[in-house]
């Protein structure tokens, strides 16, 4: 077992473990924190895959901005004090079973049939800011511009919905 595999396993365990913890913790704030751990683990994976830009953006945008926003909202609502009422156990079991079977179905067929295809680790320059920027502003100019529409509508949305009247 080489070091890469080891790190992979560690990061994966961290991601999955934190994700499970996020599900299990009753307190929303703790859930958020666990999720941030997941994001960190994923950023670790990005770095392993030599996608540094994404790794950084992931931390800044997700772990930094978005999760903090979540945290704010939870704090704002003062939800951490009130514990989430337990859901109908049977329904919960059905949920877990069906989600799990989905996973099993996909995994079993994907693992069975695919031949071994290796992933390039720690090499390749596609993930560097320079290259990405180059592509983004040449080939991807239309989506990039259009994404602004998305943000505009999100902005308007926040105004329309958020503004008290």
């Amino acid at each position: 077992m080489n070091i890469i595999t080891l790190i992979f396993i560690l990061l994966s365990a961290m991601a999955v473990g934190s994700a499970v913890m996020m599900l299990l913790s009753k307190n929303p704030v703790k859930s958020i924190l666990w999720l941030i751990v997941v994001f960190f683990a994923i950023s670790g994976h990005y770095i392993m895959l030599n996608a540094q830009f994404l790794a950084v953006v992931n931390i800044i945008v997700y772990a930094g901005a978005i999760m903090v926003l979540f945290l704010f909202v939870v704090m704002l609502m003062n939800l951490n004090s009130t514990e989430e009422p337990a859901r109908n156990m049977r329904l919960q079991m059905v949920g877990i079973i069906s989600g799990g079977s989905l996973l099993l179905i996909l995994l079993s067929s994907l693992m069975k049939t695919n031949k071994e295809q290796l992933v390039l680790m720690r090499v390749g320059d596609a993930g560097l800011i320079k290259n990405l920027g180059n592509v983004l502003f040449t080939n991807y100019v239309l989506p990039f511009e259009i994404a602004s529409v998305l943000f505009l509508s999100a902005m308007i949305g926040a105004v329309v919905i958020g503004k008290k009247n």
Partner: peptide
Amino acid sequence: VGLYVLLMVIGML
């Protein structure tokens, strides 16, 4: 919503 999503997932399955 929970039930809806559940039914969706079952449909996906």
